[in-house]
Each structure stands twice: as structure tokens, then as C-alpha cells.
Amino acid sequence: MPGRAGAAAAAALLLGAASALAQSAPAPQPGADLRPASSFAGIADQRDRSVALFNEIGKVLLHPRCVNCHPATERPRQGDARRLHQPMVVRGKDGHGAPGLACATCHGKQNFDPAGIPGDGHWALAPAAMAWEGRTLGQICEQLKDLNRNGSRDLAAIVRHVTADTLVLWGWNPGKGREPAPGTNAQFGELMQAWVDSGAACPAV
């Protein structure tokens, strides 16, 4: 039952996997690059260097892998297109969802690629105080340093958090169909450390 246009089309042979087991998500893209921390060494002014480092860090913070679960509302977003999470899930009392529909109802301890479901040992939403969605990089930077809004972490603890926390690390191993955060976690950690070492200056709000 070829359509008219179909019949007119040249014969085509397509070779490929017969069908996807789960959703036909695009293949994972390699994340964009991050500049190494060392490449900022040439910026003489310490404050300028610090701000430049944070601007580079921002490529990660504002990436869908991170900002999707640091939402401004109670609802996370999902996917590279950052659409509202379907089904409608919420942060809940402790960041782990609503009674009857916790994050763990669907998200396991690891990614499960056959179903396209990401996972981690403590899959959760960031607290409302740590919302990044819709904020400028300068605002996020101030937030990150504010003990009232960063889980009472000093700067060293922040660096440890972003280099050791499994859910942060997940950003570079997000499973099939999702673009990883830019660069590598190691590069990201070096940038964070360099930013702290340079005085943790923030871009203009």
C-alpha cells in the first residue's frame, strides 16, 4: 500500500537494529568539553580568574543533568529538552517524592538502560533552597557559598561533595538517551578547587 510519494521514492535499504527495546532515544552524545583549570592560570587578576573559573563551572551547573533536579518549583524536569517530569512527581517532604510515589518507585540504585530509567543510591531532588532553575550563574554562585542554602557546607565540603557524591557523579554517567554533563567529573573537581583556591569569587548577579 505505497503512498504516491512513497512509490516515487527511490528504493532504499536500511540496515539496523530491528527495533528498540525501550524508547527510541537518541544515542548518548559525548558531553561538551570543559577547559582544564590550568588554562585559567594566565588570568592575572585573582578575582577575574575566579569568576572565569566559575563561568566554566557554570557549563556543568546549568546543564540539564544538574538543573533538572534543582528545580525552582516542586516539580523536576527531565531529558535533554528539560520538559516537566512525566508523570507529575514532586519534591515532597524530604526530596524523595510524595507518599505513594517516591522517586524510588521508578528510580533504582543504578541506571537501567533497557527501560531508559536513570538511577542512583540516593536519587532525589535538591532542596528548594538549592533551586538553580531560572537563576543566573551569579545567583547560583552566591547560593552555593551560602551556608543557609548549601546544606551548611564550607567550601572544602562543597568540593568534596561535587567530587564524591554519587548523584553528582551520575551527571557524567547518565545512561542511555541522556547527554552527560560537560567534561569529566575530575575536570569539574579541579575547576571547583581552583575556584575555591582563587577566592571563590562570583560573577555579577
Binding site: 500500500m1 505505497p2 503512498g3 510519494a5 512513497g6 512509490a7 521514492a9 527511490a10 528504493a11 532504499a12 535499504l13 536500511l14 540496515l15 539496523g16 537494529a17 530491528a18 527495533s19 528498540a20 527495546l21
Partner: peptide, 20 residues
Amino acid sequence: ALKGREALKVAWDESGAETR
């Protein structure tokens, strides 16, 4: 069955297929 289908390689003849 699903894994088997995933592992299958099929060449499709789309000469008569609807492409609009």
C-alpha cells in the same frame, strides 16, 4: 524474546514504504 529481537539485524526494503 525482546532481547533476541534487539540483537536481530534486519535489512528493510522500503521501496514501497510511505515516506511522507
